[in-house]
Every structure is written in structure tokens, then in C-alpha cells.
Write a protein that binds this DNA or RNA. Sequence first.
DNA 1: CTTTAGCACTCGGGGATATTGAGTGCTAAA
DNA 2: TTTAGCACTCAATATCCCCGAGTGCTAAAG
Lengths: 352, 352
Amino acid sequence: MGPSERQKKILRAIVEDYVRTAEPVSSKAISQLPELNYSSATIRNEMAALTDLGLLEQPHTSAGRVPSALGYRLYVNELMQDYRLSTDETKSLNQAMEMKMAQADKVISQIGKLVSQLTDLPAYAVRSHVQQLSVKRFDFIGAGTQSIILVVMLSSDEIKNKLIRLPLVITDHDLKLLGAVLNASLAGIPASGFTPELIDRITKNAGDAASLVPIVVDFVADLLQAQQHSEVFLTGQNRLLSQPEFHDIDKAQQMLTTLDEDIISNLPATIGGNGTQILVGPEDISKELRDTSVVMTQFDIGEGMKGMIGVVGPTRMDYAKVTARLSYFAEGLAKMFGTSELPPSETDKEDS
Amino acid sequence: MGPSERQKKILRAIVEDYVRTAEPVSSKAISQLPELNYSSATIRNEMAALTDLGLLEQPHTSAGRVPSALGYRLYVNELMQDYRLSTDETKSLNQAMEMKMAQADKVISQIGKLVSQLTDLPAYAVRSHVQQLSVKRFDFIGAGTQSIILVVMLSSDEIKNKLIRLPLVITDHDLKLLGAVLNASLAGIPASGFTPELIDRITKNAGDAASLVPIVVDFVADLLQAQQHSEVFLTGQNRLLSQPEFHDIDKAQQMLTTLDEDIISNLPATIGGNGTQILVGPEDISKELRDTSVVMTQFDIGEGMKGMIGVVGPTRMDYAKVTARLSYFAEGLAKMFGTSELPPSETDKEDS
DNA sequence: CTTTAGCACTCGGGGATATTGAGTGCTAAA
DNA sequence: TTTAGCACTCAATATCCCCGAGTGCTAAAG
């Protein structure tokens, strides 16, 4: 049987107090709240019940109570009140987002920094491709007799390029031929489809430009690989140190390295749930991370790409506030990357 | 009057012992070294002298000695022995460098990570332009009727691009015209030279493509600005926490934030000295940073760009080793970016 | 004049011990 | 069902003391 309404109210009060103070919460503190006007003894009884239900924990016999992982779960699922962004906050959020984010991959790392600043916690940002990438079209631009520029447009509509210094002089005509052959044979094919036979055939058809084929193919293959592999940006680690739970250097370091290693490599895989997710440390990530939680939000970037921003903090963190900021941000971003409505003056700006 | 030879020898021993142990060095410890076979009393006398010279310090009356900032300075300038990289080390350094560093700006951040790993300290990497950038040439590629790709080659030989969705249909002919006009009027001109009059003249000459002019110009102007502004990558902050001097959380945090703020913003400006430089904390950076030093090395990337890699660590760090690794690395990089010898198969790989 | 042995003195670190006070659980009365 | 009251627990803090590493100085030896 679950907790009573009053018990939930108390639980909520405890979580919120704990979030504020980072100290175990006493019955007295709760009994003094205007909305819970009972004596400390009454609260104590209820707290004992909540402890039996596994929603609270006691660091030691004569200390106050602290929410357990289960307690947090209940809190974030049912009890948490939407945090209302103040107009000041929305203003600064908007301002932050309006910042010129010059290049597409820079955007994602900028976002990380912003989120970190706004929550005063470490944050990370991920961009990951959910579809197999391929090249949509190839173009060559002559750049003097000694070099040409290869420009490829990916299926994600990103454009990448490479300057190729020529080992020999190649005529415009040959270049056109090569372009045509490549467009005919490689367009739409993901890196996994680059079989030796295919390459062979292309080389045969490429005429005098045959010597360029391996260079181009290697470049494209590398590119597709590299893009596939998603990127994670992590910033603001130092902000974690101001949290009291990490005043223990060892914990702090363990935390930071886990951040660097685990989170970075595992979280992209976690991508899949939708909207804002809250991972409560020991429950959802790893038992060692007693005091760590992650709040993350995903959003669509369109063109087969997803983005994700997340905040890492003490299990005791202000979920409501963090969540609010995060989703507001994610909405803004989704709009910014807006899949459909592209006003002609605000075209995509891509960089390879 | 400077220290005697014997005093220097003692100073060197003290620095090196302190680097190893992170504990104040006692006269006894020194007197036991085979190369300084004096009684502890003798050493004590000399140590007292070195203290008078300001080269050593005493944390408190009955503790051993610790090198002062001045002491370190003398050490790194005169006393430090070249650290010989073992073959194992060179091997792993080479291996690390051979790693595919797919894109030009990625390279620089990868380097940071590598250096951090190899020194087990936080490291940063900077790429900065020393010359005013301009565009070398403009090209357009049609991509369907609704969009075109603008490709610009910068004076640094980097290539950037932008996908432009067209508000209207533009003929190939118009596009060629626009390209010609831009190449004629904007090539070689830095952003600062984009005067309203110039833009005006271009727009007049652009015929039917006039509506594209502002888009292109804005893009280019932004681009040149953004590139000018140098980028700093900092990684491995957590490694600092394993150093005993930062077991004090407050120090650690102060350090980390200073890292984030000061170093990041100020060091690029410091670019200018040549070769490997050692900045001893309180002396060269800021008085607050009692325990922090920076070792940094610059190298030429060619094409009006400079790179810099640096390591941040406790003032007590193994300067010899760090310096060795750093310069080895810098050499390798300079070679890699090698200005002149570009084997045709290993062309520049640029990304915009 | 330089080196060294000897000795008194200093002072931080660590361990043991006492003290405090916040908080609990339980009981009995309202 | 709520509350007042009280005994009890235990982490955190303060206090004290001792240990020993290390120094500075002096006086003797080289």
C-alpha cells in the first residue's frame, strides 16, 4: 500500500528542504512549515512510516531523514511541482539562445556551456545521428591548376569539403566525368556499402581522373564514419565542486572521472527515451554513484539527427528548476533547428 | 651575489625531491643522497643560506624546506636536466599522434586530450590566427533549383561553406556573375574592410542576384570574425584533483575556475614568446595561484596560424618531464602541419 | 675556515577523550 | 489521533597531550 496523501505532502516537503539545505531534514523543521502545522512528534510518526516504505533513509540513528532513491523517484514522478520560470529567467534564457551560434557543431557545444551556466552544474550536449549517413551529391571546384576542392553534401544536408592537391594536371572535362560517375555510383550509399568491387568499377569508369578515386573514397568513408560517431561535449565540471556532497575530494574525483568515461560513452546509447528523463544515480546509472543524478532532454534536429542536453548533479538537486530550464531550452532549440519552417533569410548554416 | 655551485646542487636536489614527494624536504634527506655526502648539519647551513637568498621557503619553523617561486625559476632556467624520453615513451607519443585526426579543428582539441593523458595533468590547446583573415575565392554550386551552396576559400586555405535556400529562382548565369563580382571586389579584403559603400557597389553590379548579396556578405563577415577569435580547448581537469596540493577542495575549485576563466581568456594573448615557456604560478600568472604553474609550447601551423599547447599543474610538477613531452609533441605537430612538404597523397583536410 | 656532532627547542599532526546538541523513539496523557 | 515529555543516541566539535621530524645554534674536530 502506498503512502497517504499527508505522507506524500511530508515527503515532498522533505525533498525540497533537503534540496535547499543539503542536510538531513528534521521533524521539527517540517512541523514548522505553515502548510504542515502538526507537532514534531506527529511528523516523526509519519516519517517513521515513510522510512518503512523505503522512501526515506536515516544516515544514522540520531539524524534527520534523507530521501532515498525511491523517494526521489516518487517525488519526480508525482510530487514535483512545475517550476515557473520567472520572466527574468526566460529573458536570460532567450538572450542566451539568441547568441550567434556561428557553426552547426559549435552550436551544440555552446549549448552545453549555456546550460551549465544557467543551472550552475556540469552539463553535456550530444549530437547523434540516428540514420545511416550517405552522400547526397558530389561536386568539384577547380582551384588553380594544382588543387581542387571536393564538396559533398551529406544526406543530413550538411556540407563537407576537402582541398585536394593534385598529383597531376586534370582537365575540367575529366573532373566533370569523375563527378558524374561518383554521383551515379556512390550517392545514397552508406559507408558500409563501399565494397572493393564498387570502388573498382568506379575507378574503371573514371578515365584520367582514376588516381583521384581512392583519395575521394577514403575521405568520404572517413567522413561518414566520423559523423556517425556521435559527439559529446561536457563542460562546467568545476561547478560540481561547489556542491557540498563533493567536498570529499575522493568522491569528487570518482565522480568526475565517471563523468568523463562512463557518461560520455554510455549516455549517447541511452538516447531513445523521449522528452525529459531523470536518471537517479544509483538506481539508473551505477551503484557507485550514490550521490549523482542526471537530468536530460532530447530534441529533434531534423534530418536524421537527434540532440540531447543533460545536466549532471548531486542526487539532491533542484529537479524542478533544472527540468524547467532544460525543457525550455530544448523547446527553443527544436524551434531553432525547426525542421519545416525555414524562413528564406534564416537558412541553415552548415560547416563541415 | 648568487648561490654557490654547491648551493645550486642542493637546490636542484631539493626541487627534485619535492617534485617526487610533494612534502617539504629535510636536510637529512638531502644529506643521504650519494652525490651530496655531507652531514645534515652542513646541508642545514646551506639551506639557511638558500632561504636567505629567497630560493627556499619554510612552511613553518620546524618543517623542511620548499622551493620558492624564485627557486623554481632558477631551477627551470639553469638547473633542470633534460629529461630523456624513453623509447617506450616516444613510441606511445608517436602512436598517439598518428591517430587519425579527421578534421582540422578537431585536431587541436584531440591534441589537448592526448597531452592531458600523457602528462596526467589538465591540458589546453589553442589555435589562433595571427593575421587578418580574408577570403581568397568564392564559388557557387547549384543544388537543385531551390538552393545553392556557397563555398569560400579563406586566406588560411581553409574552406567553409553555407547552404543557401533561395527565395527565388536564380539562373546559372546570374550566379556566375555574382561569383565574378564577389571575387573581384571582396577577395583579399578582411572583414574590417567591408564598408557599406563597398557592399553597395557589389549589390549594384550583381544584377538579378542582388538579393543574395546581403546573405553572402553577412555569412562571410561572421565567418571571418569567428575564425579570428581563437579557440581554446581545455581537458582533463579532473586529473588535477589527484595532486595532493589540491586535496583542499577550496583550492581545487579556485584553481579550476581560474583555469576556466583566466587561462582560457588570457593565455591566447600571451601567445608571442617562442618555444617552450614556463609560467610559475604566483610569479607569472596571478598571486592567488600559489600552487599553480603552466608549461606551454607554441608551434607554427603555417598559413598565418599558430598553435599552442599547454599543461597546467601544481607548481611542484615534474617540469623536466612535462617539458620534454610537450616539446616532442610540438615538434611532431609542426611536422604534421608541415608548411612546405605536402606529399600529394596526404593533402590537407579542411572542414568549414 | 669548514665540517660535524650534539642538544635544546618548535610546532604540526594524530589520537584519545570529553562535551554538546540536534534529533529520534516511545510512552502516556489530552 | 495528536501531542507533550523524556530518555537515549550519536555525529560533530573542541580540548588536550604527546610524539617526532626538523630546525638553529654552539662548540669541538678536521
